[in-house]
Design a binder for these strands. Structure first.
Length: 659
DNA sequence: TTAGGTTTCG
């Protein structure tokens, strides 16, 4: 039932319209101007019978007379209503009603000359997100309320009555309305097609996750999500199955509202929709989702202040843009500050002074608080368009530890790498955003004289504290010792006992909490296997003991002196002084018939132990373990490395069946 | 159409 009778008010003539709408006068109405958040009000003076267009669409036309100046010639206008709305309006609207419409298209009227009405007409439909409000005396309403008297007025909304589908009841091929809490998002970015794209993953109390891929030519029309935990309302999102899971995708008429997910924060929708319905019921839904999210979603993202940046990690930064500069075709520089000081020396990206945009005085004043962020590839286009002074949230900045060739001091570099993994991107925050308000207050409180005094402190850091790697290195070690009990993902899943999982059918998703008893591979090198491409068999990479055993087994055969000193290698052989009287031969391979320096020399060894082979790899470029046959030197068992170069071992595994 | 979450390697 799309028509809602919202309120019946005694002797009320004011219409309870959404507060963001502003009245537009007929005399100011023209094609091409911005009608977002505007409404037209008038009295219905004429209506035509409901008809069907050639394609079967319902069509209803009314004539509205403006209230502002009844003498004006252009004080009446044609309203063309299409589709379901036409049908609904035809049922409800009567002459003399006060009619309000928002979310309309303004089109040049082809009949203006004949009918003498406004030079434009309005087109209204559900697909365009239009809404109609109608104020009428109760005795005119086709469904007469039981308690109504002639002196009462009713406010009728001819907006669709929206039904919202829980995420666990979505079906392939449907177009639905839904609410969700943002669990993950990629801020709008330039896609490889013609549109901006934003990817949003939602969860709701049904504990089902939905990833939505949203496209629009105008990034402003995509949901204004600023952080995980925000709540969204999507209208007319298309559901499809992709890789065995439901997926949301924009369809014609897609519209969204976004709300701060904080319990107790004002319920103010963020949207660029021309008009939207948002009543008490929706208000309640937001409050309920906030409470659910507070105990079911982890919203502690990787947000950070520059003062708490951790080397080698990724973080989200809320900051103000102070300067920007082109660097090269694939990267662009942003100079930002958040009022705090990064405790490590940070890099400065060299740019030509003429390429640097920003207020020179401010750039100079903030030089000790500002950091350089280099953004790459797909982020360059958006970065170029940013306005100096705007407030940004830059998602997933990489705090990279590095040191330049000519310095022994380690510093931190900030990169926004290419791609959109992990929501990497740049979002512009509006001035009324609560985090921006807080940041502004903080920035105003920063004493720039103090920060300029930090110049001396900065050089102390460069010359002293961080002059060797010790402090930074030990800090890095601490960073790497993150406790394994921190689980930032899959908070929407409850823990399930292992025995329940063992008794369930696959595939399903679970989250477990369990004690680790054993794990494989026990050693890191076991995660790599030797593979025989002929028979596809796999074998462990031999560890030192196995290699030693292979060497010992090959040493049973003594080196064959007939194979020594050929045209391409010089040989030496000796016998060990121990009881085993082991014979060792080393063949130094010539290069251009010359022997080279040890560090450039390739040698082959027969009869050596593991320890001896290791020693030789330290001194010589390459070592090849071999053994003698009657006619030639040959490689050992191919599961052993055939070539050792420093710490690198080369394997040429072929399975034993080949021998 | 585009992307379809799961960090670059500059």
């Amino acid at each position: 039932m799309p028509v809602q009778l919202l309120k019946i008010m005694k002797e009320q003539s004011e219409t309870p319209l959404p507060s963001h709408l502003q009245k537009e006068d007929l005399k100011d109405l023209q094609e091409g101007s911005d009608h977002t958040n505007k409404y037209i009000q008038g009295i219905v003076v004429l209506s035509y019978p409901l008809t069907k267009l050639g394609d079967g669409t319902d069509f209803f036309k009314i004539v509205l007379q403006g209230l502002d100046d009844s003498c004006s010639r252009i004080n009446s206008i044609n309203i063309l209503i299409y589709g379901k709305m036409a049908e609904d309006c035809a049922k409800v609207i009567r002459h003399g009603d006060t009619f309000i419409v928002a979310g309309y298209k303004v089109i040049k009227s082809p009949t203006a000359r004949e009918d003498g009405r406004h030079g434009c007409h309005l087109e209204v439909s559900e697909e365009d997100g239009s809404a109609i409000y109608c104020l009428q005396f109760c005795n005119q309403i086709y469904t007469k309320p039981r308690t109504a008297t002639a002196s009462e007025t009713a406010f009728v909304s001819i907006a669709p009555k929206y039904v919202y589908t829980p995420l666990n009841q979505l079906k392939d091929g449907t177009i639905v309305n839904l609410y969700g809490v943002v669990k993950f998002f990629k801020p709008p970015y330039v896609s490889k097609g013609t549109d901006y794209c934003s990817v949003v993953t939602l969860v709701d109390p049904s504990n089902v996750k939905l990833t939505c891929t949203l496209f629009n030519g105008n990034p402003d029309s995509l949901p204004k999500i600023y952080k995980v935990g925000d709540i969204v309302r999507f209208h007319r999102i298309k559901i499809r199955e992709y890789n065995g899971q439901m997926q949301g995708i924009t369809s014609g008429g897609f519209a969204s509202l976004t709300f701060d997910g904080t319990v107790g924060a004002p319920v103010v929708p963020r949207t660029s929709s021309k008009v939207y319905t948002f009543m008490d019921e929706e208000h309640k839904t937001i409050e309920e989702l906030r409470v659910w999210a507070a105990s079911n979603i982890s919203i502690s993202g990787p947000a950070a202040k520059l003062s708490s940046v951790q080397p080698m990690l990724f973080f989200d930064l809320t900051c103000q843009l102070v300067g920007k500069a082109k660097v090269d075709g694939s990267s662009f520089l942003l100079k930002v500050w958040d009022g705090t000081k990064c405790p490590y020396p940070t890099w400065r990206v060299p740019v030509e002074a003429k390429d640097l945009e920003g207020e020179r005085v401010l750039l100079h004043q903030l030089r000790n608080l500002m950091v350089d962020i280099l953004v790459y590839d797909n982020h360059v286009q958006l970065a170029k368009s940013l306005k100096i002074g705007s407030f940004l949230r830059i998602y997933s900045i990489h705090a990279k530890q590095a040191s330049a060739d000519n310095e022994n001091v380690s510093h931190i570099e900030f990169h926004l790498h290419g791609g959109t993994c992990y929501g990497r991107g740049i979002g512009v925050l509006p001035e009324n955003n609560s985090d921006v308000k807080e940041l502004k207050t903080f920035l105003e409180s920063v004493d720039l004289a103090d920060s300029q005094n930090m110049e001396s402190m900065s050089s102390v850091e460069l010359d002293g504290t961080f002059s060797d790697f010790t402090d930074l290195e030990s800090h890095l070690q601490r960073c790497q010792q993150l406790p394994v009990t921190v689980l930032t993902d899959h908070q929407d899943l409850n823990n399930t006992e292992l025995k329940t999982i063992m008794n369930s059918t696959a595939p399903q998703q679970y989250r477990i909490r369990a004690k680790l008893r054993t794990y494989k591979p026990q050693k890191l090198h076991q995660s790599v296997k030797l593979h025989c491409s002929k028979c596809n068999s796999l074998q462990e990479v031999p560890d030192g003991d196995v290699f030693d055993f292979i060497l010992q087994r090959s040493a049973i055969t003594d080196p064959n002196p007939e194979l020594h000193n050929t045209s391409w290698y010089d040989s030496v052989m000796w016998t060990t002084q121990d009881q085993k009287q082991r014979k060792i031969a080393i063949h130094f391979v010539r290069h251009d018939e010359m022997l080279r320096q040890p560090e450039d020399t390739l040698l082959m060894i027969e009869g050596g132990t593991l320890k001896e082979v290791w020693k030789l790899t330290k001194r010589f470029k390459c070592v090849i373990p071999v053994r003698s046959t009657e006619v030639d030197l040959e490689l050992l068992d191919l599961s052993a490395p055939f070539l050792l170069q420093g710490n690198v071992k080369y394997y040429g595994y072929g399975c034993l069946q080949l021998f």
